[in-house]
């Protein structure tokens, strides 16, 4: 999966969690939890959804690497490469 595909999947899954979010206006380098006003439960659901869709099992120690849209896309692209 390349970065664009990873980003598309991430936006789709985050959109399921925060359907009111406008991803066109989100700062891709900003903290997702702050940008989307999501909490740890939402974030865990996001990680769970990525696991189900891609098989990538993100350990808790890597959560911070997915803190931003750019970071999450890079991480997912790398793990599915």
């Amino acid at each position: 999966m390349n970065k664009d595909d990873a980003r598309k999947l991430i936006v789709e899954e985050l959109g399921n969690i925060a359907p009111e979010a406008d991803f066109d206006t989100i700062d891709a380098g900003a903290d997702l939890m702050e940008e989307l006003d999501i909490d740890s439960l939402d974030f865990l659901n996001f990680i769970t959804a990525l696991h189900k869709k891609t098989g990538v099992n993100v350990p808790e120690s890597d959560y911070r690497k997915l803190a931003t849209l750019d970071g999450a896309a890079a991480y997912l692209a790398e793990k599915t490469d």
Binding site: S40, L44, T48, L50, H51, N57, E60
Partner: peptide, 17 residues
């Protein structure tokens, strides 16, 4: 919590809550 969650898939993990 860290030790409990480490071998688990995300859908089975616990939060501090």
């Amino acid at each position: 919590l860290s030790k409990t969650n480490a071998p688990r898939t995300p859908d089975k993990r616990l939060l501090p809550a």
